[in-house]
Simulated scan of single mutants.
Amino acid sequence: MAAAELLKTLLLNFLLTERCYDEFFLELNVLHVPCLKILLSKVLGLGIIAGSVMVKLPQIFKILRAKSTAGLSFKSVLLEMLSITGTMTYSIRNHFPFSSWGEALFLMLQTLTIGFLIQYYAGRTHQGVLLLLVYSLLVGLLLLSVTPLVVVAFLQTLNMPAVIVSRLIQIVTNYRNGHTGQLSAVTVLLLFAGSVARIFTSIQETGDQLMVLTYVVSSLFNGVIATQLLLYWSVPLDKVTKAD
């Protein structure tokens, strides 16, 4: 009995609603379409979060091995941080399920690390440290009730232009260099797959049209970067030019 109660608690906390639990386990209606959509959304969401724990680690390790951030745009990283921060703080303040936004937390930490490394390998370590301190302070303020919710909502509205501009900067950087530099293939492809999957989970779990549209746009531009990576795959590294 204890094991059954534990299983029910886990399922209700992470995968199913009370109604869907009854449909699957009491009514034995395992083909209940609305509940199957909820289950699929939850599984995808948790899978995205699990993948996000390491999605940018290949990128970080590639930078550390090369001791270089050639081909990476700091401006693009800053705009990506703006986008991730908007999604994370907006979701937390609106009490959305963790499965619908949790990857933003891990992407934020890893993107912030990349931003610091760009400054570090450019000989601007003090600016990298300042980035960490200022960003931490801003996120803390956004999560506190002292910051009006309308401000956080406005930040979320900036997500789409931030995504577009940040991806365009990286796309143009890749085009000018004729190479994708220190971009990691694993990271790029995982980001593309995750943004596509998030379209479905956002529709299913939040119903927030702004978030859905943001992920649609993000998927399109992530797809362009993934295509560039494939096109420039065989270009020698000595053709990389240093980006700002």
Rank of each mutant, 00 (worst) to 15 (best):
R93C: 04
A50Y: 06
L31T: 11
K62A: 00
V129W: 10
N94V: 07
F154G: 03
F116W: 14
S68N: 11
N29S: 12
L57D: 00
Y90T: 05
S145M: 07
K242P: 00
S219N: 06
I203Y: 13
I92Y: 07
R19V: 03
L82K: 02
V151W: 13
S195H: 07
I49W: 08
Y232T: 06
F221E: 03
F61Q: 09
L109I: 12
P161V: 10
M88N: 04
L155N: 12
K8E: 15
G128F: 09
L189G: 01
S219K: 11
G86L: 07
L6D: 04
H95C: 05
L213S: 09
L109D: 04
V151R: 13
C35E: 09
V55I: 13
Y90F: 15
V77C: 03
V224F: 02
G128Q: 09
D208V: 09
R65G: 01
L46V: 05
N29E: 13
E5G: 00
Y90A: 11
S76N: 04
F24H: 10
L64M: 11
L105V: 14
M108G: 05
S202W: 05
I63D: 02
L31V: 11
D22Q: 12
V152K: 10
S83G: 09
I114P: 05
T9S: 15
I164R: 11
H95M: 08
M88R: 01
T241L: 15
F154V: 12
V163G: 02
G123Q: 08
P34Y: 10
D238L: 08
L158C: 15
S91T: 04
R167I: 03
L10Q: 11
G115V: 01
L105Q: 04
E23Q: 15
L158S: 08
M160S: 13
M211N: 07
S218Q: 15
V212R: 08
A185R: 14
I60Q: 01
V188R: 02
T87R: 05
R124Q: 14
G128N: 10
G115P: 03
N174Y: 06
H32P: 07
I60K: 02
A104D: 07
C35M: 08
L117T: 02
C20T: 04
L158R: 13
L40K: 00
T157N: 14
L16E: 09
M1E: 14
S41I: 06
M81P: 00
R167C: 02
S73T: 01
G102Q: 10
H179Y: 07
G194F: 04
Y215Q: 11
V212M: 05
A50M: 10
